[in-house]
Simulated scan of single mutants.
Amino acid sequence: MSNDTVSFGYEEVSPAEKTQRVGAVFSSVAAKYDVMNDAMSAGMHRLWKDRFVRRVKPQPGEAILDMAGGTGDIAFRMEERGASVTVSDINQDMLDVGIERAMQRGIDGLVWSRQNAEALTFEDRVFDAYTIAFGIRNVTNIPAALKEAHRVLKFGGRFFCLEFSSTDWPGFREVYDLYSHKLMPKIGKLIADDEDSYRYLAESIRRFPKPLEFEAMIRAAGFVNTRVEKILGGAVNIHSGWKV
């Protein structure tokens, strides 16, 4: 990868083109996003998100930024625990789905804000926690997004990220690769009539840094006491760090 390109799945494109194409992907899948998550993970994404929120430990009255919060899955869980949650996403179509879901559930305490993770409009040191679930790998400039996360957190604030990667379990790794590369796009075609977007999502997992590499990026952004909690041998990971 040159200094002038970034990865979009297995392609190398300009940063501006990646931002545009990722936006198109999520606009395309927004309406079926939650149905697809259930189909592709056999419902396990719900357990992973529950586990993630337990690690965050949202407290009543805390201000939490849920970046790439899209359809509200993480925010709904944290709002139940009394936290004051701002749901942000670069994609308005994803936010619209989340707002509609919140209305259907009678949840009116969330703040919805369209934001670019690389250039947040929030003031310095305003949030107690920053969460991002299955979104960081789609950011064009990940180091910039991590620095922004650090900037908007209060001293003592915590960073939590839930993200896919490549598993290191022998045997399961080969099955996982076959599933994500061959079957995931076909499921996307069947349920959402969008094979290409789900092919990109599978490829983006392969291009995302390994857990320890990403942990080093989190430390480079200024976080301390970083930790990686592997699920399914690293197929899914909970990353965390603190601002001091």
Rank of each mutant, 00 (worst) to 15 (best):
S88Q: 09
D196M: 10
P15H: 01
M36I: 13
V6L: 00
M103T: 15
M94T: 05
E62W: 07
I205W: 00
E118T: 14
A221Y: 00
I90D: 02
T19D: 12
T19E: 11
R51E: 12
L146R: 06
W48M: 15
N37Q: 09
S84K: 13
D196C: 02
Q20D: 12
S41I: 06
L183Y: 07
E213K: 11
Q20C: 08
I107K: 15
R227G: 14
Q104A: 14
V29D: 02
F127M: 10
T121V: 12
L47W: 13
A221Q: 08
T131Q: 00
G82E: 08
E62C: 03
G157P: 03
R105C: 05
A68D: 00
R158I: 02
S204D: 01
V111G: 03
G43A: 12
R151G: 13
R46W: 04
I218V: 15
S14E: 08
R77I: 07
G157N: 08
R101M: 06
V224I: 14
E79P: 00
T5I: 06
G23P: 03
A83W: 01
T19K: 15
P170T: 03
T86L: 03
A68M: 11
A31T: 13
V56S: 03
V236A: 11
M36H: 06
R51F: 12
E195M: 02
N141H: 11
N91R: 06
F159K: 13
S204R: 00
N138Y: 02
G82T: 11
S14C: 05
M103Q: 14
D34F: 04
L146Y: 03
D4F: 14
F223L: 02
I90G: 15
E229Y: 02
R227Y: 02
I218F: 04
A144C: 07
P185A: 01
E11D: 14
D89N: 09
K57M: 13
P211F: 04
V224C: 10
K32Q: 15
V87F: 01
D50L: 10
R227N: 14
G171A: 06
F164C: 10
S7M: 02
H150K: 13
R219L: 00
E174C: 03
M1V: 14
D50Y: 12
M94Q: 05
D196P: 00
V152L: 05
E148G: 02
F155Y: 07
T86W: 02
T140H: 05
H150S: 11
L183I: 15
G70L: 05
M67S: 12
E79I: 13
S7C: 13
L120N: 03
S28L: 07
V87C: 08
G23Y: 09
V87L: 07
G234Q: 09
K210L: 12
D124V: 11
A63I: 02
R207C: 08
E12Q: 15
V97L: 05
I238H: 04
S165T: 08
G156K: 05
G69P: 01
Q115N: 10
A145I: 11
M217V: 06
A119E: 07
R105W: 08
P15L: 04
I191V: 15
V152Q: 11
G188N: 06
V13F: 02
P58T: 10
D193N: 13
Y200W: 04
G109W: 05
W112L: 08
D96I: 01
E17R: 10
L110A: 11
D96E: 12
S28H: 08
V111P: 01
S180Y: 03
G70K: 04
D108P: 01
K182F: 11
N225D: 15
L110K: 06
V228T: 15
A75V: 10
M217L: 12
